[in-house]
Design a protein around this nucleic acid. Structure first.
Lengths: 370, 370
DNA sequence: CCCACTTTCGCAACGCTGTTGCCAAAGTGC
DNA sequence: GCACTTTGGCAACAGCGTTGCGAAAGTGGG
């Protein structure tokens, strides 16, 4: 029961009874969500949370009164009164996720379960200025909003985009090729315009959060290889962003001292080596380089799993998975440790957008940075 | 208010009133400890924790009744009743820290403040077998125990040693050169023998914890360059160990693909390159290599600070600090981000031992993985 | 079919948490 | 010397999870 305040200078906060209730409620909601359509009984909730059955009954009674949970049938009896199955009511709340890609905006409306209810796309031109971009996003959000049950406003809007940014303040930094966006307070500008809470994060973090919420447990790294190379790190179920939202700079990890120059000004970065090999058609070599970077990451953080995604990976998924798996397997053999599995990330083209929506929903389920 | 369970498969635990009290009490104790001899007033505690003054009064009253805190003078008045200053009573509890180095055992007795009250050393021979080593450690602990005020038993014993191990179970893995120690349940064996709780961890983690508790805030990496190269990572005030206590494998990070072979079986590891350069007398090159590894770490985790330690660093501290600082400075210049400071770690030869003692004390102050 | 048994789950009383309202204590400053 | 400010304890309180107990809803043997 400890607040995870990663930022330096942030104070550790005391907890009162309200915080206690939120915590336990979020825990129960998360278990309900994870159980999905199958549902989960009160006693199972009690076992999983460590709370007494009576406490769970009180919490779930509140959730049912609020319309967030409902009874859904019964389990088979084991000799006594059969357990009542509870499940989340997905349509009790919605969130919008927006993915600002290079030249396209993808927006999705998801329910509490994280299922995509509706989607919209529109072209994106960051050079057209803040006003035009904001209007475009607002238009997509408005269109999606009307599709939510009862037309109720969404709980919030999550926005994911590449460049470096400050997740806490929702301010952009150095958007590649568009210096006019430097320091733009995207979160506040959008929140003022839409009248709902807005959360901003890097695309890789959103994708990783989406995967974590989608069922990938423990600690893992999502490596995204597209026109660039970045990573989203999930440690103990929460996205690790670092104090300045700078974590996950995987691509400019140096794996070849004094190697070929990279666009960032350094030499021998994984991104340069990897994309260089891809350009030469040497996909296997690219996979090996990516594997070396992944092995460094595994050693430093002791993660459970590596997930690969991005357009370049999706072009030849087998080669990349096999290549990275090979490097990590050899490493495990040397160290005598466990072999870290490597898999292709699910999610497809909407992975980032639906992950962005989870930026809003995650705090409800106790997975946020509160 | 969320439990940080890094391990996969561990359940998120619900919180009851007892947990609430422990949490807030630990928070207050931590602030008292941080305030040191200067002390801190009730109202300051209330501001820092976010609790109401009355709640702080109740908590501190309990602490005073338990002998853990005491009143210590008054602040100057600002126009009304002057604030009463509270401080931790350091001698209210003690812990023992044991550092099993290659050929020497260093043990310290520290008080609640973390100050070293007494110390003992003895030669260490891991080849002499478990019984002999355990007897040696028990002898040191017994000697230190008699020095504690009133001869009361310590709160526990923290043991730090190099090799890979399982912090959760307190079991050793593959101690270099001594295969007979593989899988030895050091924690339980010692706890049975001493009759007090025992915590086991890697030396680098203990050192990092000691630094974190000693006042280094935020997220930082402690890089230890001695006969090997390892790292202790502190993220948001807590040591990051990973699910298998494998995190911090900094030395076998590859920074030179297909580079010179390393003892681990891989090629181009930082450790091999760095120590190779040191052996050739090229300290500046060693520092540059170390800096490259540190830069990779900074990029991946977005940490606030890099601390250097270990015998090899201490031989030429200026060269290493300057070299690593140079690489990180150049990186900050390229990315436009903040320059991550590089400093020499304080602590000296007892850094690991006193950090090991903090393995026991940290949970009391809410910094543990309890 | 009935009855004993098991299991689930809600109601009521309870202990304990932090919170609120109020007042005594202990200073400053005109 | 008196008005004022600030600190901090006492007492009453709301709300949390817990405990004790009983109703509800099944199974299974006679």
């Amino acid at each position: 029961m400890k607040r995870t305040n990663e930022g330096s200078g942030e104070q550790q906060l005391g907890a009162n009874l309200l915080a206690l209730r939120s915590h336990n409620t979020a825990l129960v909601l998360d278990l309900l969500r994870t159980a999905g359509t199958e549902g989960i009984s009160r006693l199972e909730l009690a076992e999983r949370t460590g709370l007494t059955p009576q406490a769970v009954s009180k919490i779930t009674a509140r959730l049912r009164a609020d319309g967030l949970a409902a009874e859904a049938g019964h389990r088979a009896s084991t000799g006594g009164k059969p357990r009542t199955v509870l499940r989340l009511v997905p349509e009790a709340g919605h969130a919008v996720g927006v993915h600002l890609d290079r030249d396209e905006t993808r927006a999705v409306l998801v329910d509490l379960d994280g299922a995509v209810v509706a989607r919209r796309e529109a072209p994106l031109d960051l050079g057209a200025g803040a006003e035009a971009v904001l209007a475009g996003v607002a238009g997509l959000v408005g269109a999606l909003r009307s599709e939510a049950a009862g037309g109720r406003p969404p709980l919030g809007v999550g926005v994911a985009l590449p460049g470096p940014l400050d997740h806490r303040r929702g301010v952009l930094h150095r958007v590649t090729g568009f210096p006019e966006w430097d320091g733009f307070p995207l979160r506040d500008a959008l929140a003022d315009r839409l009248g709902v809470p807005v959360v901003v994060d890097k695309d890789t973090n959103a994708a990783a959060l989406g995967l974590a919420v989608g069922g990938v447990g423990g600690s893992f790294a999502y490596l995204h290889l597209g026109t660039g190379l970045g990573a989203g790190l999930v440690i103990g179920g929460s996205v690790h962003r670092g104090p300045r939202t700078g974590a996950g700079e995987f691509g400019h990890q140096v794996v070849q001292l004094d190697g070929p120059p990279c666009g960032c000004g350094d030499r021998g970065c994984v991104e340069a080596l990897c994309l260089g090999a891809v350009a030469r058609g040497e996909t296997e070599e690219a996979a090996r380089v990516l594997g070396a970077g992944a092995a460094n990451l595994v050693g430093l953080l002791d993660i459970d799993l590596v997930l690969l995604g991005g357009r370049t990976v999706e072009a030849e998924p087998e080669v990349f998975v096999r290549g990275v798996r090979g490097v990590l397997g050899a490493r495990a053999e040397r160290t005598g440790g466990v072999t870290v599995p490597v898999r292709l990330a699910s999610g497809g083209t909407l992975g980032v957008a639906s992950g962005a929506a989870q930026l809003v929903l995650a705090p409800v389920f106790g997975r946020g940075d509160a």
